[in-house]
Nucleic acid binder design. Structure first.
Lengths: 146, 146
DNA sequence: AAAATCTTGAGCAACTCACTAGACAACTAT
DNA sequence: ATAGTTGTCTAGTGAGTTGCTCAAGATTTT
């Protein structure tokens, strides 16, 4: 039930991009250094987020990445689905990527115990992550005491 | 955020063992056939559940496996933790297997946005799975209509 | 003793994860 | 224009995990 470094890095990168939202662009190495992420790996992540429409980028000497959607409109659920795929713990309960399980003897029957239980889990996870906005996420500030 | 075949097979096997709880033992090939699980793989799973104290086994010609804890006392959370490890989506929020994240810049600070969000997810998952008993699980019967 | 079952441990192909490398495209300062 | 700096794309790779198989051994019943 782990979720990947890719999502973790992606969310941490967005934390940085939130701070400069509406202002200047950030270059990959700035984000990578501040968040301690391997720069080439980070790049793939930023590219994926760009293709999904969350980020814009500019090349060249004053280039970099910037958020183009408001942090209020982006949820952690969206980001994780972009980077990690569906949230559902097994694909027969996924709402975004449903797939009938082939080997389960209950697949044909009207109700499957596993589907019932995992459906509840899926809903609980989605309920949190799809309502957790990036702005709330970024607001959890590391109280810089010391 | 997937969880493994191992857990899925384990839970499906326990479904069978619930039905004969208090009665006769079940042999691995019986469970394997009914639930459509590769028999040698199933074996490893049953062994793990035995070592964890959920099952007893007997060798020899009238041998097999049987539940030794009441289905009321076993939760899906327990089973999944035995077979798949901790429920937490990242290890810095695990209650059963906590591990400080090494590369996160917030690790030293009093609060980490990721920890906050993932902690909520962990709690939600655990809250469902640690209260979902095997007996409730097995009660979700495939209404055999047809 | 023989047959059936569980037990243990090793092995393995396929896949995924986390990351790296390198060629290429675009922008911009001069 | 062009050199230099940045993002873009595609492919590759080593380590680890998943899902499963195989073979030899231990234990029980008949």
């Amino acid at each position: 039930m782990k979720f990947s470094k890719k999502s973790e890095y992606g969310l941490r990168a967005l934390l940085e991009l939130c701070e400069t939202y509406g202002g200047r662009v950030l270059q990959r190495h700035e984000i990578a250094e501040r968040q301690n992420i391997p720069v080439e790996f980070l790049e793939q992540i930023l590219l994926a987020l760009k293709r999904a429409g969350l980020l814009a980028s500019r090349r060249g000497i004053r280039g970099g990445y910037s958020l183009i959607k408001s942090p209020e409109e982006i949820t952690l659920g969206q980001v994780i689905r972009i980077l990690d795929g569906p949230l559902a713990p097994i694909s027969c309960v996924s709402k975004t990527a449903y797939q009938k399980c082939s080997d389960c003897p209950y697949a044909a029957k009207p109700s499957c115990p596993l589907q019932q239980a995992m459906g509840e889990v899926r809903d609980a996870i989605a309920n949190i992550l799809d309502h957790y906005t990036l702005s709330r996420f970024a607001r959890t500030q590391p109280a810089e005491g010391s």
